[in-house]
């Protein structure tokens, strides 16, 4: 009991910035986005419209998904101007 109390900082302070990344929201997903790299132009519009963020730029400038965190909302597939992202059943 004492151990738990001592781990709670006064004032409800959370001392680790960005610590929600401990929690993998990828399990919420029903459909997952899959990118067709031949069509991806690396415009990054999917990235700027991702609420998580769960999209990263690869070394070649194209994008990849972080399935640990992607909740499968599908905004990227709607917004992709070259229709390179498809939502598929898990």
């Amino acid at each position: 009991m004492a151990k738990v109390e001592s781990s709670i900082l006064p004032g409800g302070i959370i001392s680790r910035p960005g610590s929600t990344s401990d929690y993998k929201t990828g399990t919420w997903r029903v459909k997952k986005p899959v990118v067709d790299l031949d069509r991806c132009t690396g415009c990054l519009l999917c990235w700027i419209y991702c609420p998580e963020p769960a999209i990263q730029k690869r070394n070649d400038g194209k994008i990849e998904f972080d399935y640990d965190y992607c909740k499968g909302c599908g905004i990227c597939s709607v917004e992709c101007p070259s229709k390179a992202i498809k939502m598929v059943e898990e």
Binding site: T20, K24, T25, R29, P51, E52, Y69, K71, C73, I75
Partner: peptide, 25 residues
């Protein structure tokens, strides 16, 4: 250009906003 913004994120993934939340974007 959108590329100027890449890497400047100040939020981490794993937050509990609904899938497809407009506010978080």
């Amino acid at each position: 250009s959108i590329k100027e913004l890449y890497g400047l994120d100040l939020i981490a993934p794993g937050h509990r906003a609904c899938a497809g939340c407009g506010a978080l974007v």
